[in-house]
Every structure is written in C-alpha cells, then in structure tokens.
Design a protein around this nucleic acid. Sequence first.
DNA 1: CCCGGCATCACCCGAATGGCTGATGCCGGG
DNA 2: CCCGGCATCAGCCATTCGGGTGATGCCGGG
Lengths: 210, 210
Amino acid sequence: MADISLLLVDDHPVVRNGLRGMFESTPGFTVLAEASNGIEAVELAANLTPDVILMDLRMPGGGGLDAITELTRRGIRSKVLVLTTWDTDTDTLPAIEAGATGYLLKDAPQDELFNAVRQAAAGRTVLSPAVASRLVSAVRSPAPSPLAARERQVLELVAKGTSNRDIARELFISEATVKTHLSHVFTKLGVTDRAAAVAKGYEQGILGRD
Amino acid sequence: MADISLLLVDDHPVVRNGLRGMFESTPGFTVLAEASNGIEAVELAANLTPDVILMDLRMPGGGGLDAITELTRRGIRSKVLVLTTWDTDTDTLPAIEAGATGYLLKDAPQDELFNAVRQAAAGRTVLSPAVASRLVSAVRSPAPSPLAARERQVLELVAKGTSNRDIARELFISEATVKTHLSHVFTKLGVTDRAAAVAKGYEQGILGRD
DNA sequence: CCCGGCATCACCCGAATGGCTGATGCCGGG
DNA sequence: CCCGGCATCAGCCATTCGGGTGATGCCGGG
C-alpha cells in the first residue's frame, strides 16, 4: 500500500518541524506540505488532496474550525485529524461536528499519533481518551446549559457591566423582562447572582468568544 | 568555541522532538537531555549544568515558573530561555523576575531561535518583539491591572457567586474590608460592578486558570 | 524620614439586585 | 389540542451593592 500523504497545519514552525521530522523518518508516511493557518490549509488541501490533514485548532488568521467547515463544504475528502494542545477546549464538539475525523492532544506519544493517522486515513474516528470521555459525557447529558438567544444577549451585556435598566433600553424591552431572563439564566447555570453567571459563562464558553 | 549544550523542557513530546531535531541538525549545539516537567528539569539541570535551558512555562506537574525560581535559588548558572506558546501570558514578567534570561514565542522563526539561544548562552537577554513591547509598556505604565493578592482572592470568590458578607467570613475579615477591596478591584479593572469585574478577570487571565 | 501601596475597619445612603407570584401571546411537537 | 419553552410584562420587598468619607497600622523604597 502507498504511503499516507499528509498536510501539516500549525502556526508554530517548531511544531510543524517536529511533526515533519517524526513522519519523514518513519516509513509509510509522506509529508506533502505545511500550512501555518486555515486559509493556506484549505488551499493546499484543495490542490494536493492529502490523505490526512493534521491540524491545530488555535491559529491566528483563519481558525482551524472554519478551515474544517470549508473543507467539508467543498467536499474535499481528506481526513482531518485535529491535533490540539489543550483538552480543555470548548471546540472539541464543534470540530467534530464540522467534519473532523479525529481529535487528539499534542502530548500523545508518537506511536499513538502514528496509529491515529493510519486510523484516520482509513476513515475511522480516533479520539484521545480524554476527549472521548468528554464526548460521551456531553452526549449523555442533554446539555444542561444552552441559554436561549435572548438570555445569552442579556448575559453578554451583564458581563459588560450593564445594569438591568440599561440592558432593557439596549434591547428595547422592559426592565421586568430583563430580570426574568436573568432569573432563567441563573437557574440554567446553577448560580444565584450575575457575577457567578458571568464566570460560568466564561467557563462554559458561552462568553469570551468575541 | 565548544558547542552550546542544551536542556529541553516541554510537556509535549512533539515539541521536544521538533526542538531536538532543529538543534541536532545544526552545528554549534548539543542537546544534553529533555525533561517533561519542572521537577525533572531542575534535577537534570543540577546534574548536567547545560549552557541553556529551553523551557515551556505551562506544564502539568511542576510549573516552569517554580522551576526557574528553584534554579536561581540553587545558584545553577544555566541560562533559562522561556519558550512559550501564547504571548497573552500573564507570567511574562514573573518569569523574567524569577531569573529567565530570555522569553520568546514558539512561533518564532528558526534562525531567531538559534540566535536567541546563542545570545542567552552569552548571558544576554533576548525577548520576542511582542514580549519586549509588552515589557516596556508594563514598565512605562504603573501597571493598571495587576491586582493585589487580597484583591484577587476577593475577585475569585465573587466569581463563585459569593456575597460580600460570605467573602468576609471566608477570609476572616470584615464586610467593610471586602467592599474596600472590591472598590479597588473595580478601579483597577476599569469597571463599576462585580459582574463586569469577573468578565475582565477572565479576559485578562486573572481568573480562569484553575 | 516620609510617601505610597496594601490591608484592615466603620458608617451612611440611595440605587440596583434577586426572589416571588402571576399573566399574556406565540410557536412547535406530541 | 394541549403543554412546554421562549419572550414579554407587572408589582412587591428584603437584601445586597456600590459610592463616599475617613481612619489606622505596616512595610518598603526613595
């Protein structure tokens, strides 16, 4: 069987270099190209159609997530293997929903990485144990948090230090309604005051993505 | 002149591999050893006394910061070059205060890295442009953000939804003091209420690192 | 030696907050 | 067709906040 062709996507030269070194010195893999951001990645993938794309999610200028979405949209059939640094990422699920074939952490041992790439090339999903367990628990729980659109808006304004009155003005609703929304937010997030609600918002990735 | 001897410290095998590859394939450098956490790093440094230690700050089990402090405390004269991923780090200054000789970002080009190592070996301070500019601005402005220890504690409790009264109880101080601390927090963060303070706390990395 | 920052505390007061009860209209799914 | 979730609104009320003013003690740097 032919070598598995790869496209490496990471904004850090060091990481790209490390990966390239690892794969080039191991039979069965060929590194076709490297990209340092999502835009480049999509272009290169479109031209080279590598078997597997190893991609970091967090990158300046063209996030990995958008890149994945774009790839699936264009019907490019390269398998995307997300290789990320932190497992605390809130984007695990989005990435998989967007079409990533696998998701593993950078601190995985080499053989695990090689294995993952082979699995991915074969179209099988590979997840880091840590990620996998989070996934199942995410599925298991019917999502306890998701705030309604209006509730999220209110929370965002609260995080900016806006008073209920001003939130009301800003959203063209009455102050009473703002209070109602906030009460619901509190209930859904399991807190009792706005400060804690903001904290939860950040913890759960509801806030913080400007 | 003899090779510059190196100790690589990073929790990610991929990164260590990348660095090792880069330095081994370049004349003038010798990689003595690798460590995956701060504890290991200190031990190895004590035994091998490398010229330069390339160290990541964020590591599980023995943070890089403590490692640096420990190294200076022990009088080990290896130069520490902090090689970190994000320039948003709040630990830039602490690291330098702790005794780091240089501080640069992982996405620096290779030659810059090589150069930095040589500079560090010669005892000169090297900083990434981004870091450098942040440093000067930090010096220039009397630090508008860094909260005092007590203030941070209070903010953390606020983020957990604790009322002033309960914060007072928890910290064994009076409610009045809590309010004073909070007022200072508000001023320093440029906000007017606890919710916004929590938000700023997360934005600025004061909160969110459990 | 004095000043500034930190940490501590007190008192007052008006405004904002959060809980509670209750109500209306719309929409989509069972 | 009814129920649940969303979005809207009202009024009441106890508590909590945040601002302002003022004060003390400690420490470290200039």
